[in-house]
Every structure is written in C-alpha cells, then in structure tokens.
Amino acid sequence: MSMRRRVIGATVTAAAVGLATTGAAVGVARRRRQIVGRRDDEHPGFGSLRSAPVTVVADDGTPLHVEVDEVPAPTTRKGRRTPPLTVVFVHGYALELDCWHFQREHFRGEHSRGHVRTVFYDQRSHGRSGRSPLGNATIDQLGHDLLSVLDAVAPEGPVVLVGHSMGGMTIVALAEQHPELFGDRVVGAALISTTAGGLEPSRILFPMVPAWGSAGAVGRTISALARTHKIVDGFRRAGKDVALVATERLAFGDDVPGSYVEFVDRMLSATPFEVVAEFFPGFAELDKFDAVGVLAKVPTTVVCGTDDKLTSIGHSRKLQSLIGGSTLLECHGAGHMVILERYDEVNGELDRLIGLTGAEAGR
C-alpha cells in the first residue's frame, strides 16, 4: 500500500471514529432506537411498486432504467383516441425512482383520476441505471438524459415534469437547453426541494462540520476519498447507527415513522461513494437562475419544507420569484424529503397543477 493510500485510509478511519465518538456523546444508539420504534400502521411497502422495465439509452450510451405506468388513451367526443397526459418524475441525488412511492401509489390508486400516465426512471449511476462515463456525471448531462427519456417513452402528447432536489435541477437544465419544449410538449412543471444555484455543497455531505469548514476544503476531501471509495463504503456500512440518525436529521423535519427513515437510509447507503463523489462538484458549479424564467410559459409549482436543511426554503422562494405566474407551497416544519413526509400535501399540489394544465386527458 502506498504512503498516500495509507494516509487517506488513516484519515477516513479517524473521521469515522470521531463521528462515532461524537455520536455516542449525543446518544446515537438511543436515538436510533427511538427512530426504529416509531412504527407506522400502514406498512407502505416501499420499493414494491413496479412495472415492466424499459431501457432508454442516453446520448453517450449510458443505459437508463425506466418504468411506465400506462393508462388507456382517452377518447374525445369525436371518438378519436388522443395521447394521455404523461407525468415524468425525476428523483434526486443518491436516491432512486422508488423515492416517489406515495406519488406513484396516488396516481395508480383510487384517488387518481385514472387517466394520468406516469413515468419513473433512475438517473444515471443511480438505482438500476448504468454507470456514467467519467466526466459525464453533470447536471447538464442529466438534462440531456431527461430529453432522451421523453423522446423514448413520451414522444407525443402533453407532459408534466416533476423533479425533487437534483431532479429539479435536471428540469432546469432541460429548460436551459431546450426552451422550445416548454409551452409545447411540456405543459407543466413542479420543482420540489430544489434550487438552480447558490448551494453550499459542504452542507450536503458534511452538515455537522464546524462553520469554518469551507466548501473548497470539503470538495478536495471528497476528491481524495473517491480514490478509496471502497474503504469509505465499508465505513458507511459499519457506521449504520450514525448514518440512520444523520439521515433522519438531514432528510426530515418532523418525527416520521421509522420505516420512512430506514427507507431513505437504504437508498443513500446503496449509492456507491464513488458515484456521490462524481456528482459532487456539479453542485458548487450550478448557476442556472437565468434559465428558470422559461418555466413561466407553463403552470409551475414550487414546493419545499420550511425545515429543509439541504436546499433551504430560501432557494424555493427565489425560484418562485423568478418564474412568472408560479406558485409556492411551503410545508411548515417539513424537511428535504417532503415527498415522503408530507406526501398528502405534495400529491394534492400535483393534482392542482395537473388541473391547471388543461391537458389532463387531451379533452
């Protein structure tokens, strides 16, 4: 083992030990028991909603895992079948398509109007999609990927785009690259717990570092650790108690059922650290506020929890102020995973948005 590798390995070990020690000081084990003990009666069955997979190949050859919940094409008064409205859900950083569980259930279930076609896909290097080539793990590339998905599984008919966190950034990237789509194929958009720039990336992975810790220093550390990502993944698995407690603090505002926290923690843990490191620099570089005005062409809603610790409510307020005619739903006390924590409010807002598009069934 080289000296550099030993130094990095020692640094990771020291960090893990330090975090575990700090965790013990604040009662990590006790808090984990409290989280796990908060059981819900509904047993959501996270990860159980499936449809036949479709592989969409991105413009650089990366295979994207896509699932489509189909509905019959609506019939107009003249007896002609028209393409149904398609709602495309785009997930966030270190998550996967299953994070939309409650939204998928809603549009499948009895509360759905029954004529909304839904599309879910795993972003490149996430979930069941293929790994991105080096250098292509960028927000701009995610915008190109979204267009590839639209062209493959929603080539005709009206489309509403719904993005959470990095998924919202993906939609903004598409708007910058192809503004002509908005008001034509794209008839509505929802930006949830997201931003178009101004992020402090150090908060995404190291929210508990002292205030003097700079984003630049964190970025250099991430780059170094990426070279020993297998070691880091090992420590992440070993420190599962700390990870679960950190997930609750970062992802949620209120005391949600333990199954919610465990579900998000599983998705985060399943994302290799090498993937985390590849996308990380893009958050510091993100600056697309000049592009969001395109969304004023279509009904747009912005949603965020007031206790979001990753993309704070100020980001959503700024987005709403820059998108003419848009609305802002602030979910009081909710955290970054508002799509789980306040799914009823989010689903209601999506129903309202779809109604505003006037394209619910092509009628």
Rank of each mutant, 00 (worst) to 15 (best):
L146Q: 07
R39L: 03
E42F: 11
R203D: 10
I354D: 02
Y343G: 02
I313P: 11
E345I: 11
T86N: 05
P53S: 08
E248G: 00
T306Y: 14
H229V: 01
L286W: 10
D151E: 14
R249S: 11
P72R: 07
K78E: 02
H65Q: 00
G198A: 07
R131V: 02
V12E: 06
E285P: 06
D290T: 06
I171N: 07
A29W: 05
K240C: 07
E70I: 05
E156M: 05
P133H: 08
M169V: 14
H144T: 03
R81D: 10
I8S: 08
V90Y: 13
G282R: 12
S48I: 04
L295S: 03
T327S: 06
E42L: 14
G293K: 08
R33P: 00
R342W: 11
A296H: 03
P272N: 06
C304N: 12
G239M: 10
R220M: 11
H229M: 02
H144Y: 05
F280T: 13
D60E: 06
D140P: 00
L174P: 03
A173Q: 10
S48C: 01
L49P: 04
H91I: 08
Y343Q: 10
G61V: 01
P207D: 05
A154L: 00
R39V: 10
G198P: 03
V160R: 04
S148C: 06
T228F: 05
I354W: 02
V162A: 12
G27H: 04
L319F: 02
A10V: 12
I192S: 05
R104M: 12
V261K: 03
P201I: 09
S132M: 14
A58M: 03
D254W: 10
M166K: 10
Y121K: 05
S148K: 02
T228D: 11
P63F: 12
M1H: 05
A270F: 09
L181Q: 13
L97S: 13
T170Y: 10
E180V: 06
G348I: 13
T11R: 10
A291E: 09
H164I: 13
M337F: 13
V209M: 13
A215H: 12
K78L: 05
G135K: 04
P201S: 12
